[in-house]
Each structure stands twice: as structure tokens, then as C-alpha cells.
């Protein structure tokens, strides 16, 4: 556990979400309104792994995307704190947000979004360089991470576009977690992995929290949540309806989350 957590004065959460709402206006579908989030309050602290549970359409991914600003929040706040200050993500100018994305907080989706004609090692190393690592150090760290995720070394310099779905997902996870920022938003990062590779990926994610990274994650299986989460937030209809340690919350979610 993180030694700072033993301080008398607990540090404020890395992420504080308050009253976050999102509604979509579908101009080309009769101007229809669709509610995505109906007021979400949430904190995530350093070294904490918060898992979002709930059925599909409950608003889990929408919440992650609103925090990352891939979706434009309609109301509410999402505050990101670091030892040197804090920013209100929902109000930050586009350019400034683009500047801290990936560096101060990251988003790892289930899909690899990278140049099709670039090798896995290069993709992961570049992600490290983008977070301030020296190129040589980043390449070394990328190799360690890919090896750990069982990405065959013979594939490291092959264009990522020709890799399998599972391989791409592991490359994506390695890129998202190399020299990790203080907050990571994980959106189904192991959905395409077979049991052995999934195991390696979960271990890597578990290491993130033990190194003090704040994680807010969406997994499609309860087993991953039970193993990784320090707290589970259950969502329904764009709201958080239940919150607690996985042991307390998950047992009556059996059959719901899937």
C-alpha cells in the first residue's frame, strides 16, 4: 500500500465528479433527446481502483467519456487534482485539455487507435515518450510491458494493423499504462482476451493501483471487478444507485451486469 495513505491528513481524491449530466440531442432523429447521465457524484483517490458496474446502457462508458471529454458534458463538474493544483475538466479550454490528455490522465479503450503502419514496440514506446520518457528508456519499458502481456516478440515490429484483435488490445493496454498518468480511465480493456492473456493483463492493471495510480474502470465481467476493485459503483439509468466494496455489492449483481 501507498505510504502516503498513512498520513494524518488524507489527500483529496485525484478525481471528483459532481452532478455530472449528459444528454444527447439527435438533430437528425426528430431532434430527439436521449439522457446519458442524470447527475453522477463520484470520487477516485490515488491507489484506488473504482469499478463501474451495471447493465449495458446504464451510462458506464458515457461517464468515462464525459470525464475524458470525448463527450461534451451537459452539466456538472469533474475535477482532476495533482500535488501542484487542480483543473475542472468540463470547463477546460479544448487546447488545454488536449495538452493534458494522456499526460495527466489517460483513457484506455478496448480498441487500438494507432497508425496502421507502425509496429507494436514503436507504438508503446512513443506513448512513453509522449509522457516525457527518454526514447531509450521508453523502448526498454515498452519491451518489458509487451513481454509481460505475452505479446510475441516476433510481432513487435509488424504493422499493428495486421495483428489479431487480442494482440491489438494488449498493445493498446501496454501503450495506455506505460509511465502511467495519475488517473486512468479503463473502458473494457481486456474484453477480447483469452483466459491466459486476460490473467496477465489483470495483473498489470492491479500493479497500477499498488503504484498509486487512481483507476476508474468498466469491465464486462464481475470476476475482474471482484479481483481488482477497491470499490464498486453500480449504475442504472445514468445514475449511481449503489456503492461499496466488491464483496458487499457484487453478489446481488450476479446476472445483472452481463
Amino acid at each position: 500500500m501507498n505510504s502516503q495513505q498513512q498520513d494524518a491528513q488524507p489527500r483529496p481524491p485525484v478525481l471528483s465528479v459532481r452532478g455530472l449530466r449528459k444528454h444527447f440531442v439527435l438533430h437528425n432523429v426528430d431532434g430527439r433527446n436521449v439522457n446519458g447521465l442524470n447527475g453522477v457524484d463520484l470520487d477516485v483517490s490515488a491507489g484506488e481502483h473504482v469499478a463501474l458496474a451495471g447493465s449495458s446502457g446504464a451510462g458506464k462508458s458515457t461517464l468515462l467519456k464525459c470525464i475524458y471529454r470525448t463527450y461534451l458534458p451537459s452539466a456538472g463538474t469533474a475535477t482532476l487534482r495533482s500535488p501542484t493544483g487542480e483543473v475542472e475538466l468540463t470547463a477546460l479550454a479544448d487546447a488545454e485539455l488536449a495538452g493534458i490528455r494522456g499526460r495527466q490522465f489517460g483513457y484506455v479503450s478496448q480498441f487500438l487507435r494507432a497508425e496502421p503502419r507502425r509496429g507494436a514496440l514503436d507504438i508503446v514506446a512513443r506513448a512513453g515518450v509522449a509522457r516525457g520518457m527518454d526514447r531509450a528508456v521508453a523502448t526498454e519499458a515498452a519491451a518489458v510491458s509487451l513481454r509481460r502481456l505475452n505479446v510475441d516478440e516476433s510481432l513487435w515490429d509488424v504493422f499493428a494493423s495486421v495483428l489479431s484483435g487480442g494482440e491489438k488490445q494488449r498493445v493498446n493496454l501496454a501503450a495506455g499504462t506505460i509511465s502511467p498518468p495519475q488517473l486512468l480511465l479503463l473502458d473494457e480493456p481486456v474484453s477480447a482476451l483469452d483466459p491466459a492473456n486476460r490473467e496477465a493483463a489483470l495483473e498489470l492493471i492491479s500493479d497500477l493501483t499498488s503504484h498509486g495510480v487512481a483507476v476508474l474502470a468498466v469491465f464486462h465481467d464481475l470476476d475482474a471487478m471482484a479481483r481488482l476493485a477497491s470499490r464498486v459503483e453500480v449504475m442504472r439509468d445514468g445514475r449511481i444507485v449503489e456503492s461499496g466494496p466488491p464483496g458487499e455489492v457484487l453478489h446481488h449483481l450476479e446476472g445483472v451486469a452481463r
Binding site: H27, T70, L72
Partner: peptide, 22 residues
């Protein structure tokens, strides 16, 4: 419309942008 590129493509606001993205 003006915004973050991923936001513009995943959550377009203006009717025209929504049509274009669709």
C-alpha cells in the same frame, strides 16, 4: 462547430456535423 477532434466525431453538437458524421 469547433472542438476536440474525438469529441466532434463521437459527440457532434451541430445538426450538420451530426449528418456529416453519420
Amino acid at each position: 462547430e469547433q472542438g476536440l477532434t474525438d469529441q466532434l466525431f463521437e459527440d457532434p453538437q451541430a445538426p450538420y456535423t451530426q449528418r456529416l458524421v453519420a
